[in-house]
């Protein structure tokens, strides 16, 4: 009896050890990587992929922080969190010799990056935040800047991203301050300006913003260009407007946590994501702007020529990358909470 139990235990342990060798754990934004791509990777490499999803950078950060021996192999932090994770030694320095496909990544975009040499992170998608309107309800020509959202006629109609940094950047943009401002006095002014926006806000939402715009539960508000490009496929009345003010943009990256149990598999996966045909398929399915210049050549004309996905030069010139807020995050947090709680 004991013997039989023991051998059973051995079998369980050995299959477990075997499984660990040939699997990777991906922790990604919800709905941000097509399942077909994961299946393709599995078929080509024999490495099994487990996918978990999160809906904000702070959740990802806290997960890595509270479980230091985390079992994730590839994560997808945004540019602002890459700096923070690098400084706190949560992600590892990348060995470029294991990532030959890195040559496909667009250099022009990287100049603005927080990690221009791709030492710790590799751009996966990028995007910018602008104004969304449904032309059945509002005339897009009348809305050219963030200031328009404060007009009394939009009472209880706006969808505002449930994202502290995005919302404060918008307020700074209106006030004429730097978009990653950390001056406590400026943050307070931004809060006071945003309080005046509260009566116009119908809902705060990030992950289901697409649903709300497609279903016309929200007809005006703020959103990400990639999200809205995808929504336009379902509801052609949705229009994306680049406001005349300075704009934030972000790069969502792939990175490998310092405690990745299977770094070799992680490198293979990150490299796979940069292969032109794969990067193109991901971008076509997800609808975001790809930083992969070789992949862009493989995309259909509708994507290559879309103004929403490819902002014109004049817009790019007034874009500012989202940066880590450092200690000012606490001050932001204090005012963001007061705003959300309506205090």
């Amino acid at each position: 009896m004991i013997k039989r139990l023991f051998s059973l235990l051995l079998i369980v342990l050995s299959t477990n050890a075997f499984a660990q060798k040939s699997q990777i754990n991906i922790y990604c934004w919800g709905n941000y990587i097509p399942k077909e791509i994961l299946r393709k990777f599995e078929a080509e490499t024999g490495i099994h992929v487990n996918l978990s999803e999160y809906d904000s950078n702070s959740v990802l950060y806290i997960k890595l922080k509270t479980v230091p021996k985390s079992y994730y192999d590839v994560i997808f932090p945004s540019s602002s969190y890459v700096t923070r994770m690098k400084n706190e030694h949560l992600i590892r320095k990348l060995d470029h010799s294991k990532l030959p496909n890195i040559k496909n990544i667009n250099n022009a975009l990287l100049q603005h990056s927080v990690d221009p040499m791709m030492d710790y992170s590799i751009p996966y998608f990028w995007g910018t935040t602008g104004i969304i309107v449904n032309d059945k309800y509002h005339n897009p020509k009348n809305i050219t800047s963030w200031q328009a959202l404060w007009l009394p006629k939009y009472k209880n109609q706006l969808l505002i991203l449930d994202d502290m940094q995005e919302v404060f950047s918008m307020a700074f943009s209106v006030l004429g301050y730097p978009l990653n401002d950390t001056d406590p006095d400026h943050i307070k002014q931004a809060y006071e300006l945003l309080r005046k926006l509260l009566p116009n806000i119908k809902l705060f939402r990030t992950d289901a913003a697409q649903e709300a715009f497609i279903g016309e539960d929200a007809t005006i508000g703020m959103g990400w260009n990639g999200d809205m490009f995808r929504s336009m496929r379902h509801n052609p009345h949705i229009k994306f407007i680049f406001p005349k003010n300075p704009l934030t943009f972000w790069i969502d990256c792939t990175a490998i946590p310092i405690n990745s149990p299977n770094p070799e598999g992680a490198y293979k996966f990150v490299n796979f994501l940069m292969r032109p045909d794969i990067a193109a398929e991901i971008a076509i399915r997800e609808g975001y702007s790809s930083p992969n210049s070789a992949a862009i050549k493989l995309m259909p004309k509708t994507m290559r020529e879309s103004k929403t996905l490819n902002p014109p030069e004049s817009v790019i010139n007034r874009m500012v990358i989202q940066k880590d807020l450092g200690k000012a995050r606490l001050i932001y947090g204090k005012y963001w909470e007061r705003l959300k709680l309506g205090l």
Binding site: S56, I62, L203, K334, E337, L341
Partner: peptide, 22 residues
């Protein structure tokens, strides 16, 4: 259902833990 505007004590707790990190 409320658009994250009408908040309860539960939301305050969640906010402190996950958004602000306090």
């Amino acid at each position: 259902l409320g658009g994250a505007k009408t908040l309860l004590i539960g939301n305050l707790i969640q906010h402190e833990f996950l958004v602000i990190g306090n």
